[in-house]
């Protein structure tokens, strides 16, 4: 725990994504396109966690994620934690929750859906209880764990 505190505290400005399941760390790293970042990025995996046993963590300097970017992460992996740091202070700490509606995040699995054939945004309604997303246009549902992102 001491190590983690140090890592977080060492950021002047930026974001920390915490509580990443260890098997999802590299998926999340890929989704964030970390390879394009020029400022310092720290990636940790198999770190000790009192809640999860082991976990992953990503720390990026000078980056503040948009809701759109965070929605993509939440689809792949719910319940991760975001910490936003400005001038060494934690200004925000929250769970990265799946929104009720996903705009331009998910690709519809239905090949004859209009969204797969027209340059347009996709919209999906999220049913957290059933673990499904439903295409606003064609009505087809997909299980959250099996979604393809745009």
């Amino acid at each position: 725990m001491k190590n983690k505190d140090l890592l977080v505290a060492a950021l002047q400005n930026g974001s920390v994504i915490d509580h990443i399941p260890t098997d999802k760390l590299f998926t999340i790293a890929r989704l964030l396109e970390l390879e394009k970042f020029v400022e310092p990025v720290t990636i940790g995996n198999n770190l000790e966690s009192s809640k999860m046993g082991k976990k992953g963590l990503i720390k990026v300097s000078g980056k503040f994620f948009t809701d759109q970017e965070l929605s993509r992460l939440a689809v792949v992996c719910p319940n991760m934690q975001l910490t936003v740091i400005r001038d060494y202070e934690v200004v925000e700490k929250r769970e990265i929750a799946l929104p009720a509606r996903l705009v331009n995040v998910v690709k519809c699995a239905n090949p004859v859906c209009i969204t797969n054939n027209e340059p347009m945004k996709t919209i999906f309604e999220v049913d957290k209880l059933k673990g499904l997303v439903q295409c606003h246009y064609c009505g087809k549902t997909q299980k959250i764990g099996k979604i393809n992102l745009l």
Binding site: V112, I114, E118, Y137, C138, G139
Partner: peptide
């Protein structure tokens, strides 16, 4: 009438002229 599913709903979102869906694929 369109062969793609959801086409009529999308059309109704891009215009103020009322759309009547005369069939969108198997939807």
């Amino acid at each position: 009438r369109h062969k793609l599913e959801g086409a009529a709903l999308y059309a109704s979102e891009v215009t103020n002229v009322p759309i009547i869906n005369a069939g969108d694929g198997s939807n």
